[in-house]
Computed example of a mutant assay.
Amino acid sequence: MTFERIMALEVVDDDLYQQYRDNMLPILHTFGGSFGYDFIVSKVLKAKTTKPINRLFTIDFPSKDTMEKFFADPAYLTVKDKYFKASVNAVTMISMHEKAET
């Protein structure tokens, strides 16, 4: 079993968001995490939130505990503060769950 989060964002600065991804990815990999799917969304037909969405992705971890450690990691938080906060206007967590490995 692995642990997966399905996330939706409104990215407002694509270049800065890409810098965030480039800088956080090595940290994510040290925790055994990875991206499963990654989409740029052109049109939302139905949403349970009023927050705008233009990006959708899954992020996978070996366990929920590992995910929590990653998001609390000081190196990750430094990258998030530098790039994520200025490049993303809205964040929606669609789902968080254990999943069977495929």
Rank of each mutant, 00 (worst) to 15 (best):
F39L: 11
S42P: 11
F39D: 15
V11C: 04
N54A: 03
S95K: 06
S95D: 12
V88M: 07
K43A: 11
F71V: 15
Y20A: 08
G33A: 07
M93F: 12
L28F: 02
F57I: 02
T78K: 15
D13G: 05
L28R: 01
S34R: 10
D81T: 14
K48R: 12
M1V: 00
V12Y: 07
A47S: 12
F3M: 01
V12C: 10
V79R: 01
F3E: 03
D22M: 06
D14N: 12
F57P: 04
I6A: 08
M93R: 12
D14E: 10
T92A: 07
R21Y: 12
A75L: 09
K69A: 15
H97K: 12
I53N: 00
I27L: 07
T92Y: 04
D14C: 03
P52N: 11
K48V: 10
R55P: 09
V11P: 07
L56Y: 08
T102D: 15
K69H: 14
L25M: 13
V11S: 06
S87V: 08
R55D: 01
Y76H: 14
K43W: 07
G32Q: 00
K82W: 05
E98P: 09
A75F: 04
F84K: 00
Y76N: 09
L77V: 12
M1D: 01
H97S: 13
M24R: 04
Y83P: 03
N23G: 10
D73V: 02
L9D: 03
G33Q: 02
A8M: 09
H29W: 06
A8I: 03
Y37N: 15
L56G: 05
A100P: 15
T30L: 06
M1F: 02
L28K: 02
R55N: 08
I27K: 02
T49Y: 01
R55M: 01
S63Y: 02
R55G: 02
T49L: 06
Y20F: 11
V88Y: 03
G36W: 01
Y20W: 02
I53Q: 00
I94Q: 05
R21P: 10
T30Y: 07
K99R: 15
K51I: 01
D81Q: 13
I6Y: 11
D81C: 11
K51F: 00
F31K: 03
H29A: 13
Q19W: 07
M7F: 09
D38A: 14
L25Q: 12
S42R: 12
N89R: 14
P26W: 04
A72G: 08
E101W: 08
Q19T: 03
H97P: 06
I40T: 14
F39W: 14
I27Y: 02
Q18L: 12
F70K: 03
Y20C: 05
D13T: 05
E98F: 06
A75W: 05
N54I: 00
K51A: 06
K99I: 11
E68F: 07
F35W: 07
F3K: 06
